[in-house]
Amino acid sequence: MSSTKPLLQVSNLGKSFGGVKAVDGIHFNLAAGELLALIGPNGAGKTTTFNMVNGQLPADQGSIRLGGEELVGRKPRDIWRLGVGRTFQIAETFASLTVVENVQMALLSHDRQLFSMWRRAADYRRDDALNLLDQVGMKSQADRPCSVLAYGDVKRVELAIAMANAPKLLLMDEPTAGMAPKERNELMALTKQLVVSRGMAVLFTEHSMDVVFAYADRMIVLARGRLIAEGKPLDIRDHPKVQEVYFGTGKTFEKEAA
């Protein structure tokens, strides 16, 4: 991890729903070129944290700074244009459009051209869209409709779409959900490669511990909205509070079977 000033700085972040504190005053930093895994049991506050970082939920308290820019109070579209991309647990693409058209739509949106009806979307920055698809290994399928793709390939297309705004920070919510072991390792290896080549940062949630330990540079662990541990994967593996709170059922950090 770089010793320079963190790209993302989260301080005293909190969010309540009624009387329940979904996120309770958490702090963490994330550097450019780093993959940070955010893990915890169901209800720990992971998705709520994601939704505050990209503006889908307003924070009740705290600060989220990206390269010195305060994100709290900004709309999701404005945060996206500042360089925050996101992928979702269930891949979101337009099934009726081709692979390349999906990426072109993202480029149109980024360039504020979505409603310029005189410009045909099929012609818009096609070379740029193809370059993004090449980076995720999907250029050869550019003209196929998304509806016929295997799920692992749809996730790759979603990653290309997320790269359309040249993100400084990429949020990945359960990126390998529903994927076979080989597919999820290929996707995360690709993500790691993009992080290194582009110098961007990735914050991701993940239930597959084999993926976390193979690809995360650091981990932060939430339980009931609070940050209970932070460190390198091997340190987290043996952390007594993590073992007690996150794995109270007796589950351990053993590598998952392929």
Rank of each mutant, 00 (worst) to 15 (best):
A22I: 07
E101D: 11
D123R: 14
G83H: 04
R81P: 01
E101M: 07
S147Y: 05
A22C: 01
S96E: 15
E70P: 07
D60N: 09
L97N: 07
A129Y: 02
M117E: 15
N131G: 09
N54I: 06
L38M: 15
A32G: 14
R74Y: 07
M138W: 12
L57V: 06
V103H: 03
S11I: 09
L13C: 11
E92H: 02
S16K: 10
D60A: 02
R86L: 06
D60Q: 03
K15G: 06
L108M: 15
M138D: 11
V84P: 00
N102H: 03
L35M: 15
N29A: 09
L132Q: 05
D127N: 11
A32C: 09
L82V: 05
Q89T: 13
I26N: 02
Q61C: 13
R144I: 08
N54E: 12
W118H: 15
V136M: 00
R74M: 14
H110V: 08
N12K: 06
L36S: 01
I64S: 00
G14K: 12
I79V: 10
I79G: 01
F17A: 02
F17E: 01
L97Q: 12
L35W: 04
S96F: 09
R144E: 15
S147K: 13
P76L: 11
M105K: 12
L130K: 07
M138S: 10
S11W: 04
P58K: 10
M138F: 13
N54K: 03
S147G: 09
